[in-house]
Design a protein around this nucleic acid. Structure first.
Lengths: 340, 340
DNA sequence: TTGAAAGCGCTAACAG
DNA sequence: CTGTTAGCGCTTTCAA
C-alpha cells in the first residue's frame, strides 16, 4: 500500500501520449491539441499527479524556495518579519526556509552555503555582522539575489530594507535630555550588529550635540535576550551613581530592563526613566506604559520580500536601499528631572 | 564573472579520475586509494565544490529538509517551538522550512502538498483541525514521517507531542471555583482546534464536578490574536451580569483580555479574576502578576524534532504519544470572592 | 501538433 | 581500487 507518487511517465502512459506532450499539457506551453490536453489533465487528476519540483529544479532553474536568515525568530520583531515574508512568498508560489544565525557569523556562513546547495532561488538576510561579509559578496557576485533586512552590510551591494536607527535613537536620547537627564545609560547589543551600532551612534550624537560627555561606565553590552538584559541592567544600576535614565536598543532588552527594575525595587519613572527602541505588545500593559521608538514593522518584511521577487522577475534594475522612518511614541516611562 | 558552481564532473576532471571515484572520495564510502582520495579532496577544495543536494535528492532519497507547519509563528509559543526545532534540525544536518497554516485546513493541505513535492524528508505539524485529516492520513499511509506537535489529530496514526490540556484547564478552573467563583467566563479559540477543545473540556469538567451549570453566554470564541481577544473580552464583559472570573485558553488571548480590562476600567483582581493557559514573558510585568497554567515549552519542540529524527533513522518502532504535564503557577490575578 | 532523444548532477551496481 | 553505465523525473530542442 506504499503508492509511490505518480510521475509524469505514469500520466503520459495513462493518457497515451509521450512524456513531452504530457509536460506541455500540464505546464501549458507550446502547442497541445485540445483533445489531448484534456486527456492529459484527466489522467493527471486520476493519478493525483503532483510533479517533482526536485527534478524540475535540477533540469531548469532553481527550487521555488526563498531562504531567510534572521538573528532570532523568538524576537517578536523578527517573528513578525518572518511571518510577513512567508505570507508574501506563499502568494508568489514559493516556500520559505527559515534559519537563525543566532548572531554568529560562522553560522550564517554555513547556513548560507547549505541553503545554496539546496538550489534556493534567493535570500533575505539580516546579516549578523555589519562588516566582513565576503560570503555575501561572493553570492552577489554569482548573481544570487539577496535582500538585506533590518540590517545593512555596507560592503555588500544589494537591495536592503532598514529603518533610520540613528535618527530614532537620537530622538529618544534628545527627548531624555530635554527632560533634564544627563546620566543616560545605554543598554546595547554587540556593536558588530548593524542596528546596535547605528543606535549607539544616535545615542552618542545626541549626547555630544548637548555637550554631555559619554561615559563608558553607564553603557552595558548584552546579548539580546530578556535574561541577559536583566543581568546587564542589574550591573548598570548596582553602581554607586547609577544613571537616571536608560535607553535600550531593542524590545527584548527593554523587557529585561523592566524585569530588572522590578526585582531591584527601582520604580519607573520615579527612580529611573526608560525609553526602548522598537515597540512591543505589552509596552502598554505596564504601569506606567513604556515610551518607545517605534518602527513600521508591518512594512519591513513585506517590502523585503517584494524587493526580492521584483529582482527575481527581473523587474527591478538598480539596487534599492530603503530606509523607513521611526517615531518616538511618548507614553509614561519618562519623568522630568529637575536640577543636576 | 558568473562562475557556475563547480560540479562533480569538474572535480573529477581536475583530479583526473572518474566521477564515480570522485563521489566515493567526497562522500567517503566504498574503496578509495589514499593518494587518489587526497587528490580529489584537493581538487574539490580549489574549485569550491559544494555538491548539489538537488541532484543527490533526485537520485536517492529526499532533501535534507524538514517541513514545519504551525498555526502562527507570531504566537510566542509557536515561535519558541519553531526555534527549538530549527536548532535540532541544524544539529542533525537538516534545514527547516517553516510555513504557517493560519489555522486554515485548506491552507494546511496545500502547504503540505507543495512541501511534499519539494522532496522533504519529514514533517512536524500542528494540525489546524482535530478531525477531518485525511490529508495527514494519506501521508502516513505513504510512510512519510510526521510528528504532530501541540495538537493531536485523533484520526491520524503517528508520533505526537502535546500537553495535558484538559488537566491544566481543570486545575485552573478548580482553583477559581475554590476561590469562590461561580460565574467563570471562558475565552476560547475555535473548537476545531485541538488544544482549544481539550481546554474547554477541562473547563466544563471542572464546572460539572462542582455542580455549576455551564452558561453559553459567558463563553466567547475568538481568533487567537490579541486584537480579536480584546473584542471578545469586551463583548463578554459588557453584559448585565458579567463573569467574576475569566479563563483564557492561550497567551495571546490572555494579553487581549488584559488590554480589554484596562480599556474598560476593569481592575484585576478586584473586579475580575484571571487565569490564562500558557505562560508568557510579560505575565510577571503586570501588576498584579498573572496566574497561569504553564507548559514545559522548552521540551515540546525539541521532543518533537527528536521523535522525527528517531523515526527517520528507523530507531523508533511503535508510535510515541507523549503528553507533558502542566502546572498551575499561582501569582496575583485571582482574588477570593466571598458570598454569592 | 506530437514524439524521440538528450541531459541537468549525482549515485550505485557491476565489471574490470 | 577504479571506471563504465544506467537512470532518478523532468524539460526542451529538433524532427517528423
Amino acid at each position: 500500500m506504499v503508492r509511490k507518487p505518480a510521475t509524469l511517465k505514469d500520466v503520459a502512459a495513462l493518457a497515451n501520449v509521450s512524456r513531452a506532450t504530457a509536460a506541455r499539457a500540464l505546464n501549458s506551453y507550446g502547442y497541445v491539441g485540445d483533445e489531448t490536453g484534456r486527456k492529459v489533465q484527466a489522467a493527471a487528476e486520476t493519478l493525483g499527479y503532483r510533479g517533482n519540483r526536485l527534478a524540475q529544479a535540477l533540469r531548469g532553474g532553481r527550487l521555488p524556495v526563498i531562504g531567510c536568515i534572521l538573528g532570532d525568530i523568538q524576537n517578536p520583531f523578527f517573528a513578525r518579519i518572518a511571518h510577513d515574508i512567508e505570507v508574501l512568498c506563499r502568494e508568489c508560489g514559493h516556500n520559505l526556509v527559515i534559519a537563525s544565525s543566532e548572531e554568529e557569523l560562522e553560522q550564517e556562513i554555513s547556513l548560507l552555503a547549505s541553503l545554496q546547495s539546496l538550489g534556493i532561488r534567493g535570500f533575505i538576510v539580516a546579516p549578523a555582522s555589519a562588516e566582513g561579509n565576503s560570503h555575501l559578496q561572493r553570492l552577489t557576485a554569482e548573481h544570487v539575489p539577496i535582500v538585506m533586512v533590518d540590517r545593512v552590510a555596507e560592503d555588500v551591494e544589494c537591495d536592503s530594507v532598514a529603518v533610520d536607527n540613528e535618527g530614532g535613537a537620537r530622538k529618544a536620547v534628545d527627548y531624555l535630555i530635554g527632560m533634564g537627564h544627563h546620566r543616560i545609560g545605554l543598554l546595547q547589543d554587540n556593536a558588530r550588529i548593524f542596528t546596535s551600532r547605528e543606535r549607539m551612534n544616535g545615542y552618542h550624537a545626541a549626547l555630544s550635540a548637548n555637550d554631555i560627555k559619554a561615559n563608558d561606565r553607564i553603557v552595558s553590552v548584552s546579548q539580546s535576550t530578556v535574561e541577559h538584559a536583566v543581568d546587564a541592567t542589574i550591573r548598570l544600576f548596582s553602581q554607586k551613581t547609577p544613571p537616571t535614565a536608560l535607553f535600550t536598543v531593542d524590545s527584548l532588552m527593554t523587557q529585561g530592563a523592566l524585569l530588572a527594575f522590578r526585582s531591584m525595587g527601582i520604580s519607573i519613572p520615579y527612580d529611573v526613566s526608560l525609553i526602548g527602541f522598537d515597540d512591543f505588545n505589552l509596552a502598554t500593559f505596564t504601569d506606567p506604559q513604556i515610551t518607545v521608538v517605534s518602527q513600521p514593522v508591518s512594512e519591513i518584511g513585506r517590502t523585503a520580500a517584494r524587493l526580492l521577487f521584483d529582482r527575481l522577475s527581473g523587474k527591478s534594475n538598480d539596487m534599492q536601499k530603503i530606509r523607513f522612518e521611526t517615531k518616538l511614541v511618548v507614553r509614561g516611562s519618562v519623568s522630568h528631572r529637575s536640577g543636576r
